[in-house]
Design a protein around this nucleic acid. Structure first.
Lengths: 251, 251
DNA sequence: AAACACCGTTCTCTATTCGTGAACAAACTA
DNA sequence: TAGTTTGTTCACGAATAGAGAACGGTGTTT
């Protein structure tokens, strides 16, 4: 029945606390956030430290994430063949559009940018790689969500939504309609939705099992992207189609 | 007395198995390597999966490292101010030497390259970042080891040594003498030691508490580096001295 | 300078849980 | 089709995780 090891889960949660915290944390602080006794947290920390997942600052006695996580993180990227496969296409899109190009994948109920190349323009829009965000919050993510099974979509949209700008979605109904439109068109153009003054074009990449493997998005300041929208859209669609064919997708 | 949580340690060891394995592993294989029952490993995996540390390939039923490790790994780099601090100096060294420049730190009994910039030459020597290696095996690492307390050095050299090339150290005595020389000179020039035909210059960076914060090394093919050795050595020493002063080191 | 407050760490103890080993169904292999 | 191997589930007894109080050190306040 019990298929989860509570102390292991506590260890994982402890590590993840550092994602949204300053670099160093103390035992007391962690015990509050984890709702565990100080003694238990201390045992967790010494265990994680002995494996290199946590490091203790000898002066402040506080704790930080350890280098083993850096090793494991780079191994994740190395394992991820879609990144290697996509880099040439992403770079080609950059050279043809001169705007930010990102590669987005789904992980469970979240989306993550696993690769990006920045625009060469001095004024440019950029994003943070390797951080999770909701599947409904950016074009690149919505394009992934649009091709998931209905039950999965319902599950995602059942949770309370976070709003980012005045143009963000306010209702799940609005998102559902949007997902419908994405399926009809095969792409999404979004303007000023999550970020004010930013326009993006996103489209899905399919693999041989007819599932979405990832998505690509070209994003930039609206005043530069809008005039070039037709060209950018054509480039993005050509690219994802070429990539899908390479992956063995039969439309 | 028992200050370690065994299941947490098992979880950590499970994750680290993936560092030296192909990208996907099965329950049976992992249970052999961990010397744990299949049932226990399966519980570990489902727990780690629910926290995003592990992912299961739905087709092959095998397991891989999860994206949360990527998030945590990038957070480690972000926390690490020595990297940000060093980048300008590293880039300057690259522009002046045109050879590989690496930044090396110590983590427990290991060394890790936490930053590097590759040589622009078409024929070049390069290294892998973010992977652990022994503190006695490269110049950059030995320069860190040379300024550690004697007891620590003994501890490191008590373990059986790994040899890499015919020029590698064969005895701990040889390494001890080498560490002594490093302390006298304040740097190390090594030729063809770990890698055949490769010469490197490494020197330590000190901080305000008079301890080694990191080391910098310039490495390249011997036939390009040897003729320029005097210049490269001068550049490296100037750089680490400037960095140490910036960090508050009082010689 | 003394009292206080807070920190990380250690300790003991019991309810809880972890890990074993066997049995399971599903997917390959021959 | 029979045999092997896979990932998964289950029940139980031994091992341990976590609570809570106490310790010693550091830094702050009165």
């Amino acid at each position: 029945m019990d298929q989860v090891l509570s102390s292991v889960r506590n260890g994982c949660k402890l590590l993840k606390i550092f994602l949204d915290s300053p670099k160093e944390l103390g035992v007391t602080e962690l015990s509050k956030k984890l709702q565990l006794s100080k003694g238990a947290v201390h045992k967790l920390l010494t265990t994680l430290e002995s494996e290199g997942f946590i490091r203790q600052n000898e002066k402040t006695k506080q704790y930080t994430l350890g280098y083993t996580l850096l090793e494991l993180g780079t191994k994740v990227l190395k394992n991820h063949d879609i990144v290697d496969f996509s880099m040439p296409y992403i770079n080609r899109l950059l050279s043809r559009t001169s705007e930010l190009v990102v590669l987005c994948v789904r992980d469970g109920k979240d989306a993550i940018y696993v690769a990006k190349v920045d625009s060469p323009h001095p004024i440019r829009f950029t994003v943070e790689s390797f951080r999770r965000f909701p599947l409904y919050s950016t074009s690149a993510a919505r394009v992934l969500l649009a091709y998931q099974p209905d039950e999965f979509q319902e599950e995602i949209l059942a949770e309370p939504l976070k709003t980012y700008t005045e143009h963000s979605y306010t209702s799940t109904e609005e998102i559902k309609q949007n997902l419908q439109i994405i399926r009809e068109h095969g792409y999404e153009v979004s303007s000023n939705r999550r970020n004010e003054g930013v326009t993006g074009v996103a489209a899905p990449i399919f693999d041989s099992s007819d599932q979405v493997a990832a998505s690509i998005s070209v994003v930039g300041p609206s005043d530069r992207v809008q005039p070039e929208l037709d060209n950018i859209l054509r480039e993005v669609l050509e690219t994802v189609q070429e990539m899908s064919v390479q992956l063995g997708y039969r439309p």
